[in-house]
């Protein structure tokens, strides 16, 4: 704080602002706190505190449906993250480094999944799969159905955009002369990418990947549209449970998901802030 700020008396405006800040914090974090606290509640009735216990966490681990949904979530998240990180990085490179016909249009289209509502995205994907299935059946004679692969493909579709945006921000700050210097020092395009560009954009790539992982693990809307029977992910399963009434089990599962998401976001931020050129 500068010296000038310290001597200035706190007027009513400042007090209102400070109060507002606190109100926002309470508004945001009180529910989260409640959720966590009640996940350790031994009582079957959600809102009534009994004694602290790990009962619902134990129940969660014994629940086959929860574990199956968790497994599905992890498969979808890891697969869609891997694929979308590669494609998203490639898209960022293409948009930032090369000139090609239709670049501007492509530029806009890449960001579309970020802008359009989840429900629209979900309906689009479902429609796409239904149409694709018709064609696949006509051509190959096999009849595919909705399931883990369609969920994964949908997650790839929206994750590419997020990865591309994060990687591109990193690329924009990279001096193009570095790649020219690599080429001047006999590096092929691939070598220049591997030895110079990639290490320098790595924080962006990893940050994008973690963001993709988080988004995939959290998605409900798109997934519930394109999921088949028996292929629910954890958040979709929780959503289903809630409709039948909130149980403390949901609190436990939600707390686990919350902690996992926060760790991923934190990791993403840390990686993006770390730059490889700092010694």
């Amino acid at each position: 704080m500068r010296a000038g700020d310290a001597v200035r008396p706190r007027g009513p405006a400042q007090r209102v602002l400070a109060a507002n800040t606190w109100a926002v914090y309470v508004f945001l974090y009180a529910p989260i706190l409640l959720l966590i606290v009640f996940s350790f509640n031994d009582n079957r009735i959600v809102g009534v505190w009994n004694t602290a216990s790990l009962r619902w966490y134990r129940e969660m681990l014994d629940n086959a449906a929860v574990l199956n949904a968790l497994r599905n979530s992890l498969i979808v998240a890891l697969a869609s993250t891997a694929v979308s990180t590669v494609i998203g990085t490639a898209a960022a490179l293409a948009l930032e480094r090369f000139r090609f016909p239709g670049r501007r249009v492509y530029d806009g289209l890449v960001y579309l999944p970020v802008i359009i509502p989840d429900v629209t995205m979900a309906v689009m994907m479902l429609l796409f799969f239904v149409e694709a299935f018709v064609i696949v059946q006509a051509v190959l004679g096999i009849s595919p159905s909705l399931g883990i692969p369609t969920i994964t493909l949908s997650h790839i579709a929206f994750n590419i955009s997020f990865v591309a945006i994060v990687v591109r921000a990193r690329l924009a700050g990279l001096d193009p002369a570095l790649e020219e210097a690599a080429a001047d020092l006999y590096a092929s395009r691939w070598q220049a990418f591997r030895r110079v560009t990639l290490p320098l954009i790595m924080p962006g790539v990893l940050g994008g990947a973690l963001l993709a992982l988080t988004l995939s693990l959290d998605d409900v809307v798109v997934t519930s549209f394109v999921a088949g029977p028996g292929s629910t992910t954890l958040p979709v399963y929780v959503f289903g449970l809630v409709r039948r009434g909130v149980t403390p089990l949901i609190n436990a599962v939600s707390t686990v998901m919350l902690v996992a998401s926060m760790l991923l976001v934190l990791g993403s931020l840390l990686i993006q802030r770390r730059s490889p050129d700092r010694a």
Binding site: D175, L178, A181, D184, Y186, S188, V196, P276, D277
Partner: peptide, 17 residues
């Protein structure tokens, strides 16, 4: 990369990593 010349760039373009 296939020319027998090397360049000292105006900004140096040293690899920061």
């Amino acid at each position: 990369n296939r020319r027998p010349v090397n360049t000292v760039f105006q900004s140096y373009a040293l690899f920061p990593h």
